[in-house]
Nucleic acid binder design. Sequence first.
DNA 1: TATGAATGAGCATTCATTCAT
DNA 2: CATGAATGAATGCTCATTCAT
Lengths: 197, 197, 197, 197
Amino acid sequence: MAIIVDKEQKKKDIALGTKALILKDGINNITISQIAKAAGIGKGTVYEYFKNKDEIVFELVEILMQEHNKQKEAELSKFTSTREKVKSFFSFFYIDADKELREIYKQFTAIALSSTNEDMLNFQTECYFLYEKWMEAIIQEGIQNKELKPEIKELIMGIFAFAQGAFIMSVTTNAITDLQQKIDNQIDMLFDLMEER
Amino acid sequence: MAIIVDKEQKKKDIALGTKALILKDGINNITISQIAKAAGIGKGTVYEYFKNKDEIVFELVEILMQEHNKQKEAELSKFTSTREKVKSFFSFFYIDADKELREIYKQFTAIALSSTNEDMLNFQTECYFLYEKWMEAIIQEGIQNKELKPEIKELIMGIFAFAQGAFIMSVTTNAITDLQQKIDNQIDMLFDLMEER
Amino acid sequence: MAIIVDKEQKKKDIALGTKALILKDGINNITISQIAKAAGIGKGTVYEYFKNKDEIVFELVEILMQEHNKQKEAELSKFTSTREKVKSFFSFFYIDADKELREIYKQFTAIALSSTNEDMLNFQTECYFLYEKWMEAIIQEGIQNKELKPEIKELIMGIFAFAQGAFIMSVTTNAITDLQQKIDNQIDMLFDLMEER
Amino acid sequence: MAIIVDKEQKKKDIALGTKALILKDGINNITISQIAKAAGIGKGTVYEYFKNKDEIVFELVEILMQEHNKQKEAELSKFTSTREKVKSFFSFFYIDADKELREIYKQFTAIALSSTNEDMLNFQTECYFLYEKWMEAIIQEGIQNKELKPEIKELIMGIFAFAQGAFIMSVTTNAITDLQQKIDNQIDMLFDLMEER
DNA sequence: TATGAATGAGCATTCATTCAT
DNA sequence: CATGAATGAATGCTCATTCAT
């Protein structure tokens, strides 16, 4: 009988093993050798689980995202007001607990911007729609609770763009210092418009 | 004196020579050899003008930005209302005429996100402040014209972040289709709040 | 006893399973993984039947050759004249029915030419002698029938070399188009010399 | 001023440097590293002169062939009878002086047989036509000298195939020992048919 | 000042074979 | 008997940078 291995789990282990490497050296500067060593396996073994280097990064981002989403979901359930939920939603961009994930998100965005890879595009689109639906659900709940006026989702989607842009500015310049305040302000401004009075 | 000017001009020529290459193959996929050939000079000569490959990209972006800013300034002077001026300001992110520059901006942003280079950070910060001042001037003018309520610049700066984020989403996903409308809507929404009635 | 037959049969099955792969991708481009999958067994199991990859190819060629020889023998019995028998003998190099086998023979010849393997040499020598004896029997029969003058076998062996060389030229260049005609001509020429008049 | 290098000469030097390696280890077993070392240059430098590994082998074969052809031409001029010229022509396949070249020819044939490369096919076709023309010229001369009956070239071309095939048999089996005699016999037989009496 | 020849470290990927189960 | 997970050696090729001329 052959050795039975939980392939799915091992994939995850390998991918997660790259996390520390990416944080230390950056996605572009890690080698398959390093990945294999970090996972405690041979170089060839990596290719038993992943077709190529890119896929490892994809897997890692997917794992971390799911993990993050689970935590975020729990976190959001603690808040009752929609405003607080939304603020909490975007706290990813500034809270200390998400620092590492943010660093990976940053690097991943860099790859997305320089890549013409179709898979990358699809992956990012999926992510976008996932968060969009999530946010819609939050908003919808707010509307049903009579918290919010039945406004168009366009406005709330604007916060996505704003938060993303503000985050990028904050990491590519020295000009943005109080990212949390900026994001919260924007959310407050929007909610002041959207809330039922 | 003349020689100095020549040297400066040659730097520009070399950098501008890379533009077509970058648009065709991407910054990450062009070689010093190609750059030298495009500029009609030897590979070694490139290093007489630039310390390394990155600097060439910096120079190019700087040149293009200045050029773009000059055009934008002329363009803005055509509009009388502040709202139109601001809309025109952000039209960079969608008008066809800026397509090429946008592609380079995209790639440059990717570099900025993955680099930890101090020069890069400073360059981006400078750019940010330049545009911030510019926008402030526009807003200030609107206030003096009694067009706008003396609102905080924070709001208008929000559009920067929004536009940047929306742009990045539009190029990294398939989810954003009507970028112009989204940006214009956001501006309109903001101006509806800010305008004197 | 039954088990031994089974083992021998399984070896054949595995080897025959590679045939389609070789025709599709070439001997040099197929992997043990593919071979195992084609045979419906595990990679490790392949090594229960063969010492290494080369041996599988040997086995296949041997099987196909025997198969081919059996068919050829039946075919030859249909002809009464020695000339026709000889022509039929060499038809391997051009008839459509042997196209696949020819492709494998071609690839096998490439291996033989680049290998210094002793087994390979012996295998090829055996094959040579087998065909030589066969041809001798045909010629001998022709002599006994008073069809042929008791000529030296050298001449007829020359056709072997000719046919082989012409075949190789036909597959390594674009210069040889009518291989059948060329081979038949050569045989006719030789028989015109050899036949009793 | 740049360093002036005779690129064409250096290409030749690099290619010729691989000759000993090929004879020692075989074309398939030499690495770019070895080639570079043999040429006394860096690995990268090899790629300044050749697009890939295959091209180096092509270059070598071309050089050796031209060299061989030059010698052969001189050699042939020493003979007056067409029969001797033709025998000398095919002596390549057995004389000791061409042993090395023959080894390379053998390996190159192996590559040709296993490759589907278009360039290889064209190269081989060119070679074939070159030798065909050459042989035609020799035969034509024999006809004009009234040495030969104005026979079809087909017959003489048959020797090409024969010699090639006999050579391949001689190196892939242990069955052919007196290759020279076999080839000479075949030529004699043909000339006995072709000569004016 | 200008050149371009030379470099060599660096890296992703493949695959025949082994061996623990 | 059968397996398939694990391996790691092996290799072609790239390219920013240097430096002799």
